[in-house]
Design a protein around this nucleic acid. Structure first.
Length: 459
RNA sequence: GGCCGCGUAGCCGAGUGGCUCAGGCAGCGGACUGCAAAUCCGCGUACGUGGGUUCGAUUCCCACCGCGGCCUCCA
């Protein structure tokens, strides 16, 4: 398949170094607060890529880290008067929970920064040996000047960056662009023993060390939000390549941002929507559909209207699933069904063009309904099977009903009411029949009358 | 200020140098229905502005306007 590579700004063939297995590293969350709606996208994009590759028979060895030590976690802990590890543990569970509910498949390895201090220290020592690191007191800095390729990923020019000069002119640094590899411990902060005294790793260090630990150098794909391109990913490349002399990640995938009120959703702007609450309100499939209805690299504006549209679109897929689930004819795909399967695959292979993939799904739905109405059950079944399979490859569960569990008891009671209603209709007592339907609707149960009887589903 | 990207019908969102230029939501008409719902059939001549290249541009180039992102922590 072809995928946009930030390194070249072009859509390129994604070629795993080991045929059949893609090695990928995703920058996971910094567990310093509750997950917001925007965090879902950065986890969802690699998930969709992974599902598609696996559907195509490629294995994906995915590593997604957890940043469990950093300035904000420490600040939050101090504010609460607890240990930083406590904040990280609590927030980490919140992220685990929302990712699970979103059906984001767990990564193969989920390394925590605090469990990999040793390889980080070794990496810094190696950088000292090659002359790319220097210390001032208990701090260690990366010497940007020592890495001529610096700025390649983000398309920056060193001199422009310096003149932009919003970077702290810290006198301890040789160059304003140099960044911390190791920070000397301040009182009350979590710290680890190191050759430079007690301290903690700089932010960028963990990803270099942990990706090398689990994937080695020159792994296939590195992913993250577009806001990580600079400085985070630029710095990862500098550290890793300066230390090893080898290419770091070969392909870079970055997702665009979620906006709300025209601005990037972020805690500092204050326009965040809790992902936990959004899941409670909309369920995982609506949120997934919302994100996948636009291309992963374009910015997306979140609003109630967009979510309502996503719900409506998803409902069309679900209604098709409900209508065709009882059919049990042998599938007899038509050329149209086959063509839409191919269109879906072509879209996904073309830089994860999920909006076009959705379009193929909708064409299958229309063709399937039409076949069903024409009594061509085999064609309808072929369309249904294609929709179920391909929607599954995008991570949808069309059989799942919306929130509000319908236990056996609830289902039984509804069936009972509908059988009484059917008797009323047979007796042309439409007032009673309508009353049952209206009251059920008020409770969130939609009733549809079909030639073969009534169907119902939870709204 | 520098760098990057975007501007497509009421809304969202694909796509292409010309051939009937996806799909969804909303809307309208018809079929079906006791009425609905669901579904099917039909219906929308859109490409920010001004130049240029071209036989022909929404698609390529330039300028401008507007919007966003990054340049500091950030998914």
């Amino acid at each position: 398949m072809r995928l946009h590579n930030t390194l070249t700004r072009q859509v390129e063939e994604l070629v795993p170094r080991r045929p059949g297995t893609l090695s990928a590293y995703v920058c996971g969350p910094t567990v310093q607060g509750a997950p917001h709606f925007g965090h879902a996208l950065a986890a969802l994009v690699p998930d969709v890529l992974r599902r598609w590759l696996e559907h195509q028979g490629t294995e994906v060895f995915l590593v997604r880290n957890v940043t469990d030590v950093d300035d904000k976690i420490i600040a939050q802990a101090q504010q609460e008067g607890v240990f930083a590890a406590e904040v990280a543990e609590r927030c980490g569970r919140l992220f685990d929970d929302v990712f699970r509910r979103l059906r984001i498949a767990p990564p193969r390895v989920e390394p925590r920064a605090t469990a990999h201090i040793d390889p980080m220290i070794e990496l810094v020592e190696q950088l000292e040996r090659v002359g790319s690191a220097y210390r001032t007191g208990g701090d260690v800095w990366f010497r940007v000047r020592s890495f001529p390729e610096y700025g390649r990923l983000s398309g920056r020019d060193l001199d422009e960056l310096r003149s932009g000069a919003r970077v702290d002119a810290d006198d301890r640094k040789e160059d304003p662009l140099d960044f911390a590899l190791w920070k000397a411990a301040k009182p009350g902060e979590p710290s680890w023993r190191s050759p430079w005294g007690r301290g903690r790793p700089g932010w960028h260090l963990e990803c270099s060390a942990m990706s090398a630990t689990y994937l080695g150098t020159g792994f296939d794909l590195h992913a993250g939000g577009a806001d990580l391109i600079f400085p985070h990913h630029e710095n990862e490349i500098a550290q890793s390549e300066a230390a090893t002399g080898e290419r770091f990640a070969r392909h870079w995938l970055h997702n665009g941002h979620l906006t709300m009120g025209g601005e990037k959703m972020s805690k500092s702007v204050g326009n965040v929507v809790s992902l936990t609450e959004a899941l409670d309100l909309h369920g995982p499939d609506v949120i997934r559909f919302f994100f996948l209805s636009a291309h992963y690299r374009s910015p997306m504006e979140l609003s109630d209207e967009r979510l309502d549209e996503a719900r409506a679109g998803l409902e069309r897929l679900r209604a098709f699933h409900r209508a065709t689930a009882p059919l049990d004819a042998a599938p007899t795909p038509t050329s149209e069904v086959l063509a839409q399967r191919e269109a879906f695959a072509a879209a996904m292979d073309d830089d994860l063009a999920t909006p076009r993939a959705h379009a193929a799904l909708f064409e299958l739905v229309r063709a399937g309904h039409a076949a069903r109405e024409a009594g061509e059950d085999g064609v309808a079944v072929a369309a249904r099977d294609a929709v179920t399979e391909l929607a599954g490859a995008l991570g949808y569960d069309l059989a799942a009903e919306e929130s509000g569990g319908s236990g056996a008891l609830v289902g039984g009671l509804i069936e009972l009411l509908l059988s009484l209603r059917a008797e009323a209709r047979a007796a042309r007592d439409f007032a009673t029949a309508d009353r049952v339907r209206d009251r059920l609707a008020a409770l969130g149960v939609t009733v549809e009358d079909h030639p073969d009887g009534a169907r119902w589903h939870l709204r």
